[in-house]
């Protein structure tokens, strides 16, 4: 494996981890808004219990992602930075409002509702804008003749862009409702569990339809990547199977308390589904970072710098890993936290 291939693999890993964490995070914010008036179901409490300790960690991942791009592919960072000025700035603005208001909503009790609405709505827009980086990287909206210019008009009138946008929103809601169903089950919040299981069952199929829409529009607008993805059709089919397994797991046996389904299995199956699909997508995208001008070779950093950065990844991982495990055990796995009396 060449150094640039190792680097892009690391980057892909970061993108994937961030994508999963962010969907949970943004989705939880959205659900906490939707169920804010359903005191009985505790669905909002569950969402907040997940969200409060995690948003900061999730946010750090997006910073890690940006830093990884410019430390491993500074050449690509130049083009990405130029092209993404407008969409990137919009994301930043929404993200700033969302993070701040999320924190404020936990402090200023009397204003919780309006603040939660800001958090919930921005939380749906951000994933849609974030994922727009992908269709942009497919090339058709960028003019390379005079420097690099993104044609916003062309981007925002393209069905391909909206297919991605819709997919991001649907996936956000799907993954987060699944995870929250699992979280409610662990917390023994029966009502909340029912609500989130129902939501997952409704939105799951929508997210798959959106994925098909992406492929469909891709065929017209970015033929090069469509053809390459089709070379890996068998893997895509296995990925679809993961979705079916997840659906099945939600209908599986009812436990003693009457909670129907095994959401944990569903979460794992869906994660598996997304890993496979994004692997196929990523492979088809290679070697281009921005088609057709920037490749992983042309954008790659100095080899000495890469070595140094790579070593810090290893050292950083060794240092941080126990911290993550401790964090997980306190907030995802500690019955005292999960089953606390909802205030």
């Amino acid at each position: 494996m060449t150094q640039s291939l190792i680097a892009i693999t690391i980057l892909w890993g970061f993108v994937f981890i961030y994508a999963v964490m962010a969907t949970m995070d943004f989705g939880a914010g959205f659900w906490s808004m939707i169920y804010i008036n359903h005191d009985k179901t505790k669905a909002t409490n569950i969402a907040n219990r997940y969200l409060s300790p995690t948003w900061e960690v999730t946010n750090t991942f997006i910073v890690a992602l940006v830093v990884a791009v410019y430390s491993m592919f500074p050449g690509a960072a130049y083009s990405l930075g130029t092209v993404l000025l407008v969409p990137g700035s919009l994301i930043l603005l929404l993200l700033a409002l969302r993070s701040a208001f999320l924190v404020f909503s936990h402090v200023a009790d009397d204003y919780r509702k309006p603040l939660t609405y800001v958090t919930g709505i921005t939380g749906l827009l951000i994933p849609g804008l974030l994922i727009s980086v992908l269709p942009i990287s497919h090339g058709p909206y960028i003019d390379f003749s005079d420097g690099q210019t993104l044609h916003l008009g062309k981007l925002f009138t393209s069905p391909h862009e909206y297919a991605f946008f819709g997919f991001a929103v649907a996936s956000t809601l799907f993954l987060s409702s699944l995870l929250l169903a699992d979280y409610s089950k662990a917390s023994k919040e029966f009502e909340a569990f029912k609500v989130y299981r129902r939501d997952a069952l409704i939105i799951g199929p929508i997210s798959v339809v959106m994925a098909f829409l992406i492929m469909f529009t891709m065929k017209n607008e970015a033929r090069w990547i469509y053809d390459r993805m089709m070379d890996d059709l068998p893997i895509l089919l296995v990925s679809l199977l993961g979705f079916l397994v997840a659906g099945g797991a939600l209908f599986l046996p009812t436990n003693k308390e009457g909670m129907k389904g095994m959401p944990r299995v569903a979460v794992i199956a869906v994660t598996f589904q997304y890993v496979l699909a994004s692997y196929v997508y990523g492979r088809a995208h290679l070697p281009y970072i921005i088609y057709p001008e920037v490749t992983i070779q042309s954008g790659f950093t100095d080899p000495n710098s890469f070595k140094a950065v790579f070593i810090t990844y290893i050292v950083g991982f060794i240092i941080l890993f126990p911290g993550f495990v401790y964090f997980w055990s306190l907030f995802m796995n500690d019955k005292r936290y999960l089953r606390q009396k909802s205030e």
Binding site: S71, P74, A77, T312, Y313
Partner: peptide, 14 residues
């Protein structure tokens, strides 16, 4: 940032 990425990525990374 293109120059920083090539030469001075370490502090950002750490």
């Amino acid at each position: 940032m293109e120059v920083i990425g090539r030469v001075m990525a370490l502090p950002f990374q750490i």
